[in-house]
């Protein structure tokens, strides 16, 4: 089953956040199609280290598609040419022999480049800090079964909560909008009775922070949900709009 391919890689290199940056081209021989995309990047880096060059910096951690750390805009798509996967789950069997692969960092005003393919996504943390939680402190909470939650609501909340905060939605959005990310969190909590209490406050605070941080507005193209590795639906954006508008109108 093992199959090897050769590749030409066009990789964005940028020494730090202030540097201008540009593409470098590298050749890679014999990459197994069974390897993951990031393993291919490891092979490239091992090659670069061998040549005494600085390896390409890229974010990655769990390598099983759940931590949300890996990014990479590959051949015109965040997380590359496979559906419902993160870059670390993308495998080289999706590429052809002698193919040229263009690898870029997430691009958006909200995600400045730190180095090479690494971008700064702390804006997402700031948005969560603005209200993406229930205000309960440790201890002093009721029994877990005190409030029954309809299974459908729990399942829908889970679907929204499956967002991994990778930022692919922002990366692919023509408006650099973070609406899918924000709506996923607002929906997750608004669907549960525990989150209902602060639902209005939360929607206002998180949208306010998102706007303040320079993310764009949603024009409902739906590109975000296509590229979301966890399939978070833009139905959540409709819910966020609902929550936000009703909260604002009640003010």
């Amino acid at each position: 089953m093992e199959n090897n391919i050769s590749l030409t890689l066009k990789v964005w290199r940028q020494s730090d956040s202030k540097a201008k940056g540009g593409f470098e081209t590298y050749k890679l021989e014999t990459v197994s199609t069974d390897s993951s995309f990031l393993e291919m990047m490891d092979i490239l880096n091992e090659q670069l280290v061998g040549e005494g060059k600085e390896p390409v910096a890229f974010d990655h951690d769990c390598r099983e598609g759940i931590c949300g750390m890996c990014s990479l805009y590959i051949n015109g798509r965040p997380h590359g040419p496979d559906d419902d996967v993160t870059t670390c789950q993308l495998h080289m069997r999706k590429f052809k022999n002698n193919e040229t692969i263009t690898i870029e960092p997430w691009r958006s005003a909200g995600f400045p480049v730190i180095k090479d393919l690494i971008v700064d996504r702390t804006a997402f943390d700031q948005i969560i800090a603005a209200g993406g939680y229930t205000s309960v402190s440790t201890g002093g909470v009721p029994d877990a079964n005190a409030l029954p939650i309809p299974k459908d609501d729990a399942d829908e909340a889970m679907d929204a909560a499956s967002c991994i905060g990778c930022g692919a939605c922002v990366a692919t959005c023509k408006n650099g909008s973070a609406m899918l990310f924000v709506s996923a969190k607002v929906s997750h909590l608004a669907l549960l009775p525990q989150g209902q209490v602060e639902a209005a406050l939360r929607a206002k605070a998180m949208v306010g922070k998102m706007d303040e941080l320079g993310f764009g507005a949603c024009t409902n193209t739906g590109a975000c949900e296509v590229e979301c590795p966890k399939g978070v639906s833009i139905a959540n954006i409709a819910r966020l709009n609902r929550e936000y508008l009703s909260a604002k109108l009640k003010d």
């Binding site: 229930t134 440790t138 079964n145 309809p150 729990a154 909340a157 889970m158 909590l189």
Partner: peptide
């Protein structure tokens, strides 16, 4: 047991049965 209570209060969407119980 306190952990489960705490997490549910935080909005952790644990799987539920049709009756709404965990």
């Amino acid at each position: 047991n306190d952990i489960i209570d705490q997490c549910v209060a935080q909005g952790v969407p644990f799987a539920r049965e049709y009756g709404g119980m965990l």
